[in-house]
């Protein structure tokens, strides 16, 4: 645990906003349960991004406030609104999309990420359990995998590790990590610190990250 007090870092909403900046017109995107579902609220205005729910829906636009319809939900069980050109399909078609490389970006939560891009996000040993859902398929099948998570655990210990201690979701799959403190690229040479949150120094980030971070020549503060 680092000696210095932990910087405040970004709220969950601002992490989601920063992830949304990675999305572009025409991309097909799957958002995992929890923090990632907030990303649909922060799309660049006017850009058509196509959200996929692994329960069998393509082209939902956000969470619905209307009367609950049990058959119109995303993979988190939340009621959704549908955009123009939306479609429904069965689970085999849905996972052919995911496993066949037809999803451009998956955004998932994380418990731990290693410097080699290993992801652990399904099993919490201290609770003696967890569930897989679509996480392993999305981690293996998406063209680009973004992990959105808190930089540290409840004890301020690092979640970005040399090796994951928790059981893996998939090895060597993470491309980008967005946390409340930093934006970090996972590269073959290791982790590259690209951005820090406002008021957070590269030293603050390194003190809460187990492996050594390389600093990007373009290292900058996040533009939120």
């Amino acid at each position: 645990m680092p000696d210095s007090a932990r910087p405040a870092g970004l709220s969950r909403e601002l992490i989601a906003l920063r992830v949304a900046q990675e999305l572009r017109e025409g991309m097909v995107v799957n958002l995992g349960i929890g923090l990632p579902t907030l990303v649909s609220n922060f799309l660049p205005p006017g850009e058509e991004v196509i959200f996929q729910g692994e329960n069998g829906v393509l082209g939902y636009t956000g969470i619905s406030e209307e009367e609950f319809d049990p058959d119109v939900i995303n993979a988190g069980g939340q009621p959704i609104t549908l955009g123009p050109g939306a479609s429904f399909f069965d689970s085999a078609v849905s996972f052919a999309m995911i496993r066949g490389g037809h999803i451009d970006v998956a955004v998932l939560g994380g418990l731990e990420v290693s410097e080699k891009g290993d992801l652990a996000n399904w099993y919490l040993p201290e609770r003696g359990g967890g569930s897989i859902g679509g996480a392993m398929d999305l981690a293996c099948g998406a063209e680009r995998l973004i992990i959105a998570m808190s930089h540290t655990n409840r004890e301020d210990g690092p979640r970005i590790r040399k090796e994951c201690e928790f059981p893996l979701t998939a090895p060597g799959v993470v491309d980008l990590i967005v946390t409340d403190l930093a934006v970090i690229d996972v590269e073959p040479e290791g982790l590259l610190l690209r951005e820090v949150a406002p008021g957070v120094s590269p030293e603050d980030v390194q003190a809460r990250t187990e492996p050594r971070l390389r600093l990007s020549p373009d290292l900058r503060e996040m533009q939120l």
Binding site: E54, S91, A92, S94, F95, I98, R99, I132, G133, G134, A135, M136, D137, C140, G141, A170, P171
Partner: peptide
Amino acid sequence: PQGTFVERIRSGGAGLGGVLTRTGL
């Protein structure tokens, strides 16, 4: 894993001997 789950059922219904996948490796 959910994709494996549905493909195992699809195999069972389509007379296939199983599926090969990278998910779970």
